[in-house]
C-alpha cells in the first residue's frame, strides 16, 4: 500500500492507505475528524469543502495521495479552544445554519472567500456559494453571516 504524509490542522499525519482513498475518507475515517461531511457522490453539494494549501477544494473529489506534502485545514482547525473563529461566530449570530450538515463546508468556503475578498457584496457571496448546497436556510442568513464574518476577520 502506498503511504501518504501531510499536515492536517497543523499536525503531521500520515499512514499507509489504498491509492483509491479519497481525501475526505482519509480525514474522516483515518483521522476521525468527522466535521467534514459527505452529502453527495457527484461533487455538487460542497459539504466536504476543506482547504488544501490555502485554497478551498472538495475533499470528495481529491485522492488523499494528491494531498501529499500539503497543508490541509478542516473545520476543526478554525476555533481557538473555546473561542470560535469570527466566521463561525458570524454563522451563529446570524442564524446561518439549521441542521448543521452543510455548515462545515459553508464555513470553510466562507473563510476562503473572505480571505480573497474581505469586502464581499451580497452578489459576490451568492455567486461564491455556487458549489455549496443548503437545504434548510434559503441561504439568506448564510449570505449575511459571510458578509459579517468577512468583516470581522479583518479585525
Amino acid at each position: 500500500m502506498p503511504s501518504v504524509s501531510m499536515t492536517v490542522n497543523g499536525n503531521a499525519v500520515g499512514g499507509d492507505i489504498e491509492a483509491r482513498t479519497l481525501l475526505v475518507d482519509f480525514i474522516r475515517e483515518h483521522l476521525r475528524l468527522t466535521g467534514t461531511h459527505v452529502g453527495c457522490d457527484t461533487s455538487q453539494c460542497g459539504a466536504c469543502v476543506v482547504h488544501v494549501d490555502g485554497t478551498s477544494v472538495k475533499s470528495c473529489t481529491m485522492l488523499a495521495l494528491q494531498a501529499e506534502g500539503c497543508q490541509v485545514e478542516t473545520i476543526e482547525s478554525l476555533a481557538d479552544g473555546d473561542t470560535l473563529h469570527p466566521m463561525q461566530e458570524a454563522f451563529r449570530e446570524h442564524h446561518g445554519l439549521q441542521c448543521g450538515f452543510c455548515t462545515p463546508g459553508m464555513v470553510m468556503t466562507a473563510v476562503a472567500m473572505a480571505k480573497e475578498n474581505p469586502n464581499l457584496t451580497e452578489s459576490d457571496v451568492r455567486h461564491g456559494l455556487e458549489g455549496n448546497f443548503c437545504r434548510c436556510t434559503g441561504y439568506q442568513n448564510i449570505v449575511e453571516s459571510i458578509i459579517a464574518g468577512a468583516k470581522a476577520m479583518q479585525g
Partner: peptide, 9 residues
C-alpha cells in the same frame, strides 16, 4: 467553469 472549489483543482 464549475464552482470555486472545482476551479481550484
Amino acid at each position: 467553469i464549475g464552482d470555486p472549489h472545482v476551479r481550484n483543482r
